[in-house]
Write a protein that binds this DNA or RNA. Structure first.
Lengths: 162, 162
DNA sequence: CAGTATCCCCCCTGATACTG
DNA sequence: CAGTATCAGGGGGGATACTG
């Protein structure tokens, strides 16, 4: 995602997107979260071209999201594992998966199943909550631009004709 | 995001990504959530080319994420608003914003502030939780491929040499 | 103001062949 | 197996000019 890098935007979302890079990145991260560690695994499971995979992995490493480590089994090859920064993308992945499940499910059903590991139950929907832990209605979530950033039109209510 | 559409993958995440389209889509959705409704608003705030914006908006409408409605103020122009399907992308947006805030913040601080509207407090971190509502450690979240889908390497523990 | 129409560029991606 | 190198394409994106 170049041509107009998002990284200089003073917006957490844009900056996050800039780091995550391209769509492949999310899928690579997803696979890594499911246990993929080796080049071959990513390549086979994603059906991605090798050079593209190399490129994406490099980006992810430069972004501090993954890192290259010696093989866990003592073999010569190296492996790719998520850093903490990368692992903390889990809420993004989960939110995407749950949205996809609900709104654009495949006819054969979801392929990625996210669970509470100990109980084996499906993970409850990830959702904004109040301080007390209660899930809240989306309309009760406020989003606005902060002080420093240019405030243009909006701000809470939208009924201004501009 | 073509060349290899993700939509035929039996993976909720890939399918979600396919619908959301390109990175611009997320930023458009973000702006819509903050109250932007008019072509001009999106264009000015995002600094996106007009034809590109048209293209992205069209995609979002075709994907059922936004819809075109008559202007709320009675003017001739039309406006773009999120559908329920689109609004439910909020967890994705929020997760991205919070990740960006934490890991790749702009030196001037975050520009997008997400709050609990009534209290005005910063929204608690969106995070996977158990059935009882307690937030859980990421390592306790399970991700695996479902029955129908090809199960390759992973599955819970990763210590298999393949 | 809200687009549409052109033109062009360039990055992402894929395919193939090659190397340690 | 894990990449790197090279070549080619396609689409997303930008700039500008034009229209209702």
């Amino acid at each position: 995602m170049k041509t107009k890098s998002f990284s200089d935007m003073q917006c957490s979302i844009a900056r996050a997107l800039d780091h995550v890079g391209s769509w492949w990145s999310l899928l690579i991260i997803r696979d890594a979260m499911m246990g993929a560690r080796r080049f071959k695994h990513f390549q086979e499971n994603l059906g991605i071209a090798k050079n593209t995979l190399t490129s994406r992995l490099t980006d992810l490493i430069e972004g501090g999201i993954m890192e290259k480590v010696p093989a866990s089994d003592g073999y010569a090859h190296e492996e790719y594992v998520l850093t903490e920064r990368g692992r903390e993308l889990a809420p993004v992945i989960i939110a995407l998966a749950q949205w996809g499940d609900k709104w654009v499910a495949h006819e054969k059903g979801p392929s990625t199943v996210i669970t509470v590991r100990e109980s084996g139950e499906k993970l409850p929907r990830i959702w904004p909550r109040r301080e007390d832990g209660e899930p809240m209605a989306l309309k009760d979530v406020g989003m606005r631009r902060a002080n420093g950033a240019p405030q243009k039109i909006w701000h809470e209510e939208k009924e201004d004709p501009s």
